[in-house]
Amino acid sequence: MKSEPIKKVSIVVSKGSLDGIYPGLIMANGARMEGMEANLFFTFFGLYGILKKYQDKIRIATVGNPAMRVPDAKGFPLPTLLGALPGMSAFATSMMMKEMDKLDIPPVGEFIEMISDAGGKIYACKATVDMFHLSQEDFVPQMDKVLTVGDFYELSAGGEIIFT
């Protein structure tokens, strides 16, 4: 039996590290590329992905990331103490961004713009907006609306919800 194709996805981005934000963006963009409806819901530290001042300062965590290896993905595990050295996170991030650029994966700001232009919807979580004392002008212009969790479930009706 052939399964019913997915028509709509709502993706929750809850983490603010590079590997917390990118998977959700890639999945949302990929959904639009396949003609699916795509909603992105940014919550907690994931919200930094759509904050004007901070979205292009997203970094990879070099501490508390036991899978992290140097100098490349098949190298040696990076000891936590070394990962804590100043500049390590920035360095690892710039290395990774270079690799991503080769694959045509854009910086966060450009990626959000691309998803929005492709018809994907960008939402911010109201609880986090209140908790972080944020207002409209802190967000990139592509942010469509601040939503309560109830609103989010409502607009996700009939689709898949993916939590990242």
Binding site: N29, R32, M33, G35, L103, D104, M114, D117, A118, G119
Partner: peptide
Amino acid sequence: TIRRLTKQSGVPTKELYALFPGAPA
């Protein structure tokens, strides 16, 4: 990729999705 396509062909993302509705690439 769609990114390269829109940047180098001069057809912006929005228009690309309008020209080839559904799955543009």
